[in-house]
Design a protein around this nucleic acid. Structure first.
Length: 218
DNA sequence: AAAACGGGGGC
DNA sequence: GCCCCAGTTTT
């Protein structure tokens, strides 16, 4: 894919995603962009299917939707609410630890910068960037496995790891496209541009795609 | 660089 | 039954 074509591709896939009305992560829909819910839902979504995350975060937020209330919730109850997402003991402890840190170090608010977010245990670059872009509407590049795969499949960048992809995209992708890029690439990767056997015949941007590493088997 | 964390769903 | 899944931390 040529640099110039990325702009058209952004617009085309974005319109497609709008029709699907996908949530961004878990129960966090495009209208509701509370940083705390994005942070926690993103933590729950780790190595987990999204609809599972949606149900779990729904249950959890109905019990507590801010750091102070979350800390008052017994660990057992947090574990019970999020059980189906897997890693539930680790994640429950992380959630408590994060809420404690938010109260002690950030006046009970979710911080607004990548560096501050990265001080929280369990928060990596993907989660930090998602909070900054979706929660605070500030520029950031949120690279998960889908963004990594697709931007390389298109031939827009050539990288080995998601971390390298974030750097490459920061350098190459014009800043005005960063937030849109995050918004549509993940659901696009889930529904259409799958790891194996992607639906190229239904893809709205197949004309631009280099199809790097596309296979029909593992 | 690779293991470990974990239950649910697809096949 | 077996293998993968919207990552991050630890060895």
């Amino acid at each position: 894919m040529r640099d110039r074509q990325i702009h058209a591709a952004v617009k085309i896939v974005k319109n497609t995603i709008r029709q699907w009305e996908e949530p961004i992560v878990g129960v966090v829909a495009r209208e509701s962009r509370d940083p705390f819910q994005i942070l926690i839902a993103c933590l729950l979504s780790l190595r987990t299917k999204d609809h599972t995350t949606a149900e779990a975060s729904q249950r959890l937020f109905s019990l507590a939707d801010n750091p102070a209330r979350m800390l008052k919730l017994p660990l057992k109850q947090v574990e019970h609410a999020i059980f189906p997402v897997g890693f539930y003991k680790t994640k429950a402890k992380q959630i408590h630890a994060i809420c404690q840190s938010l109260l002690e170090n950030f006046e009970g608010r979710v911080p607004r910068t990548i560096d501050e977010l990265l001080t929280l245990k369990g928060v990596g670059r993907k989660t930090a960037n998602l909070v900054v872009t979706v929660g605070y509407n500030k520029p950031g590049i949120c690279v998960d496995i889908h963004v990594h795969r697709i931007s390389n499949r298109w031939g827009y960048i050539q990288t080995k790891t998601p971390e390298e992809s974030e750097q490459a995209l920061r350098n190459k992708l014009p800043k005005k496209y960063w937030i849109q890029f995050n918004d549509w690439l993940v659901p696009y990767g889930q529904n259409l541009c799958r790891p194996v056997s992607p639906f190229c015949s239904q893809c709205p941007v197949s004309d631009y795609c280099d199809r790097v590493g596309v296979t029909t088997s593992r």
